[in-house]
Nucleic acid binder design. Structure first.
Lengths: 253, 253
DNA sequence: CGCAGACTTGACCGCGCTCAATGCGAGTGG
DNA sequence: CCACTCGCATTGAGCGCGGTCAAGTCTGCG
């Protein structure tokens, strides 16, 4: 199923967290240099997954969180009925599995959207570590609370936003996350299929497709398959935050 | 604004967490008896809020989480545009504010839906405590991860469920949470207005109203204002989990 | 008693879903 | 090299759920 390759004997390819180009995203300032050394003993680097592989599957025993190093991961929950909800997309530097912390089993499945490498953080060791390093505990609380906030933002989108607003928001979110990694904010490849976008945003695939072409006709984006270029970011921001009231400048009183 | 009454000099009305009837919900088994004593030193009990009072407000400095002791609280986020999303309802024994943990400011507002008393857990002290009590850290990780899961379930509802399914789900959720506190699972008062239900479930107030009367006409519930009686829980469960496919017994192959 | 806010009910309509057909690119095998 | 297939994406036609707008009713409170 999931093809996981452990690399070497730990010395050869075991790049340290200190040298990792993502360290400022993945573990920002939370821990001192000394502490980093301890952390590295615990983290298992170099798991590789191919497109479609599961990093972990819902309802299997919870063992670890995973930091995405390269590639991309989507998480989703499945109900008894079999319908699925994509709950998030995770890009390099982001942490997957926080929704299962201290649970017996994984609360969602995590699937690689493309060839992806991750670092594994086994919880058993994490418990010890967070106990010894107060900064790390803080950091986890912070990451988890942000995960909650993200999910609340998603709920707001799903319940209040139109199709165009949702898609503009998603494009901008991806854009800023690429920018954080010093990649182009205006030109990138979508790691996920239209289907995943639709599911995540609570839309039909056809609607996603239609909005993409509409945006293209309006000159807001240029899209060919998964290649996307944002041509008018300000307009997209305007769409993504559209209020239901008229903007102040147009209101009567 | 928020009328917060600190009670006595701590000895008189300061019921201990051990004696609190909600302790098994609020702090289940996570800490030993000795540890409970330490915890009690930190928790401030007896804040009282009237209907409509804010327990805390979005974007004000984050200081504490709050455990609901009696009454009910709703949390909501507000965007720049001014539209609001109710993100949760909190009943006695449940913890409010986890989405702001380790943030500078509260990520949402919390408003009392009726006369409500809460216990306050100041984070500064919590940091020390979780450091000393490994069980408590676990407990918080667990509560926060469940909060994420709840929010993901909400997202699933908002993006996949019909109006009837959403309302059936909410009624059943409230029912089981009342039951956990040894209250009737079939007869209770809704702590929130139709408006709040509508906002939470991503519906219009009118739709909520219509579904309530439809359920009533079908003999599933009896509702008069905020008084609700669930007459056919099994039917409601059936509705809440309705699959988009035909049930297996009716499928062709 | 009267008012304001919450709730209900009805008529209408539009966004986005459904169903169905077609287009397109990549991988496969003859 | 083309023919074929399979998955994914696009486009069009039609319609239904739930939103909007507008009255009307109920409830609690001063």
């Amino acid at each position: 199923m999931a093809q996981s390759i452990k690399i070497g004997k730990s010395s050869s390819l075991k790049a340290s967290c200190q040298q990792c180009s993502l360290s400022n995203l993945c573990l920002p300032l939370a821990v001192s240099e000394d502490d980093l050394a301890r952390l590295e003993d615990v983290i298992q680097q170099g798991h590789i997954f191919n497109r479609g592989d599961y990093v972990f599957e819902q309802s299997t025993p919870f063992r670890s969180c995973f930091a995405v190093r390269s590639g991309a991961v989507k998480t989703s929950i499945v109900t008894e009925n079999g319908d699925e909800q994509v709950t998030g997309f995770f890009l390099p530097g982001e942490l997957v599995g926080l929704d299962s912390m201290s649970s017996a089993n994984y609360a969602c499945s995590a699937k690689a959207l493309e060839r992806t490498s991750v670092c594994e953080l086994p919880v058993e060791h994490l418990d010890d570590l967070t106990h010894k390093l107060p900064g790390l505990q803080h950091h986890f609380f912070h990451l988890m609370s942000q995960e909650i906030q993200n999910s609340h933002q998603l709920a707001l989108m799903l319940s209040k936003r139109t199709a165009e607003e949702r898609i503009a928001s998603l494009l901008l979110s991806l854009s800023s996350r690429f920018a954080r990694r010093k990649l182009s904010a205006t030109q990138f490849n979508l790691p996920m299929a239209r289907n995943d976008i639709a599911n995540f945003l609570g839309l039909a695939v056809e609607t996603v497709s239609r909005v993409f072409t509409r945006f293209q006709n309006q000159g807001l984006i240029r899209a060919r398959g998964r290649e996307v270029e944002l041509l008018d970011i300000e307009a997209l921001q305007g769409i993504s935050q559209e209020a239901e009231d008229q903007p102040a400048c147009q209101r009567k009183s």
